[in-house]
Design a binder for these strands. Structure first.
Lengths: 366, 366
DNA sequence: ATGAAAGCGCTAACAT
DNA sequence: ATGTTAGCGCTTTCAT
């Protein structure tokens, strides 16, 4: 591939027009409105462009003029090692990417890591050249949301935060799904239940990432809505079955580590050794807990029932009893809502369906 | 959160300046050079901005002026369901994202699916507002590469394509790594080997995605360098051990499906029932093959040795004998090479280290 | 410390 | 079918 040496000064549409002794419009048309000039002239323009090493209209200048960036921004507040490690989050990104690809839009991962200060992250949000944002956030008090809203661009929220006025949202009914799953567990005869969840707020009570019994006040905290809705679903079912929801042992894990589920299981069983069912708010937690239990000779479901949430491939393959949610579809719908918003102009809230999957990890208590 | 109604016409830096009766420069300085004006004036600018709903300088206009986009483009030619399903590819993306995040750059996933026509894809490549590209491609004759090079932006290639003049590359020594792994297999006493690989060229010989014995000519095809280098490594070791490399049974899979490995194993064993070792060019293939074999009562490593490539978490956890490559580091280095290129201005080729991991899936032939 | 003027490279009206 | 004119919103010399 012999690349001719680039000219000292990069070619522009104007320089190309000058070279060809035609107007800039004509060159622009050669790229954007082929029907506006003779095929012959167009050919001449394009070949001269190639000769001059002109790659076509500058995307940034074009964006400025057309007010279209050709990309949507994805803001994920959680650490990268969460988004890229949790299969459910990943499926969501894949779905979103797919819908962007379908309409030729790029997907910009906005640099908003937890290692960056909030002001840095907000700066990144403000600096993103995009036509709209998808916000996939774990907390209702997301620090970047104000900056995003400031930009007056189309925004679609996934799962959280809720109640952002004027903004569309794609989600599932976490509470109802978890309630149905819990009903299944209760029907099997379980009465002492442990619940393993991701952390319930952006802050973490004290030093050390070890899972810990959750403060009841945190459980009611509205910041991590998804988690608390799922907990609420468990309580709903317990109350309906005549159990005291306060007897539920809730353990909170700080991180999405491979070991989180196992450590959480230990914490729950230490707090209440009579637990016969361990329900988890994520499959990764449940799978980790199962591995840990099995390594210690606790059989599932013989000695312990374990359930998850999400329906990730590994969970389904291993027969985990769980709630299957359409993660890919979530991403896809979020993208579609951004690409062609409802004609009404009004924000919509789309609640996608979930399914309780009775697997091989739930059975009667020992 | 009470958002004041956005003014009919969006506020700009100029309108803000007019409102404040100061020059545009001053407003610009308030955002970009806080030391160039009194704290008092700056405060006045910022608060008026907030009142007017001005979110700060428009990123696109700023990019046009400063010639900096604040993002790098990632071009992956493979289908999305590959990039987001293969843990090794994912680790690479995570590493790249991490390095971008560290310098406050966004990561733009350029919409270049296989479903899009090349001209569409080129359009997407040409339309991306980025400061540079990372190309993660499966073939040397990548159709988008010419368009990318046209743009005269910094480019870093990962693994492939090779021999792009003037472009830095991050890779591993696939051939040597596979040779070392094969030496281990041969030392165990295996003589009849099957090799499962991803497809070797962009085109696929005939209809149907079923894995098939690879045409020897395709095996020598240079388009999918990574795959063919790995095959070459196997042959190197065979030749050195006095075996005929032509006796190697090579099976090519079209897709990265969960079933690909199993189907590939069947194809290999059908072609040569005396095979005692199944080497795979990806862990996902090997794990799939193992599951399939086990389901059919073939014990690993008792009746069949299975090896992989990549060192993905599940493989390590399950004790797969494989080559561990630093996928995350690959992404990180690619990003770093883009963010601060070598002072010399010359392209570099970084060959990262790999390690042969002897696991529990390789043993003497039955 | 603040302002005036000149573009960055392009596209969209509106002519011709 | 092609050209003219006017910005998109911003930063950056260079003056004051």
């Amino acid at each position: 591939m012999s690349r001719s040496p680039a000219p000292r000064r990069r070619a522009t549409l104007a320089s190309l027009a000058a070279e060809l002794k035609v107007s800039r419009t004509t060159v622009s048309n050669a790229y954007n409105r082929p029907d506006q000039l003779s095929a012959e002239l167009r050919e001449r323009v394009l070949s001269t462009a190639k000769a001059l090493g002109y790659p076509g209209p500058d995307p940034v200048a074009r964006s400025l003029r057309t007010r279209k960036a050709g990309a949507v921004g994805l803001v994920i507040t959680e650490p990268l090692n969460y988004s890229f490690r949790d299969p459910a989050a990943l499926d969501f990104v894949a779905g979103l990417a797919e819908s962007c690809e379908a309409v030729g839009q790029g997907l910009l991962l906005v640099a908003v890591g937890p290692d960056r200060s909030v002001s840095d992250g907000s700066a990144a949000v403000l600096a993103a050249g995009v036509d709209g944002f998808v916000v996939y956030s774990a907390s209702d008090d997301d620090p970047y949301l104000p900056a995003i809203l400031e930009r007056h661009l189309p925004v679609v929220v996934v799962d959280q935060p809720r109640d952002v006025p004027g903004v569309s949202r794609v989600c599932i009914d976490d509470r109802a799904a978890m309630r149905r799953l819990t009903e299944h567990v209760l029907e099997l005869g379980h009465r002492e239940i442990g619940l393993l969840t991701m952390r319930l707020g952006r802050e973490w009570p004290d030093a050390g990432p070890a899972p810990a019994i959750a403060d009841p006040q945190r459980v009611r905290s509205p910041h991590f809505h998804v988690q608390s809705e799922r907990i609420r679903g468990v309580r709903d079912a317990m109350t309906a079955a005549g159990l005291d929801p306060a007897s539920l042992t809730v353990v909170e894990s700080y991180e999405h580590l491979p070991s989180s589920g196992g450590a959480g299981a230990d914490a729950a069983l230490a707090a209440n050794p009579r637990i016969t069912a361990l329900m988890c708010t994520a499959d990764v937690l449940a799978l980790s807990a199962m591995d840990h239990l099995r390594a210690r000779g606790v059989y599932v479901p013989g000695s312990m029932t374990v359930t998850g949430f999400d329906g990730v491939p590994e969970a389904l393959q291993r027969g985990l009893t769980t709630v299957v949610q359409p993660s890919v579809e979530k991403g896809r719908r979020a993208g579609e809502l951004l690409h062609d918003p409802p004609r009404s102009g009004l924000p919509v809230i789309e609640v996608l369906d979930t399914e309780v999957m009775r697997g091989r990890t739930s059975g009667p208590p020992a």
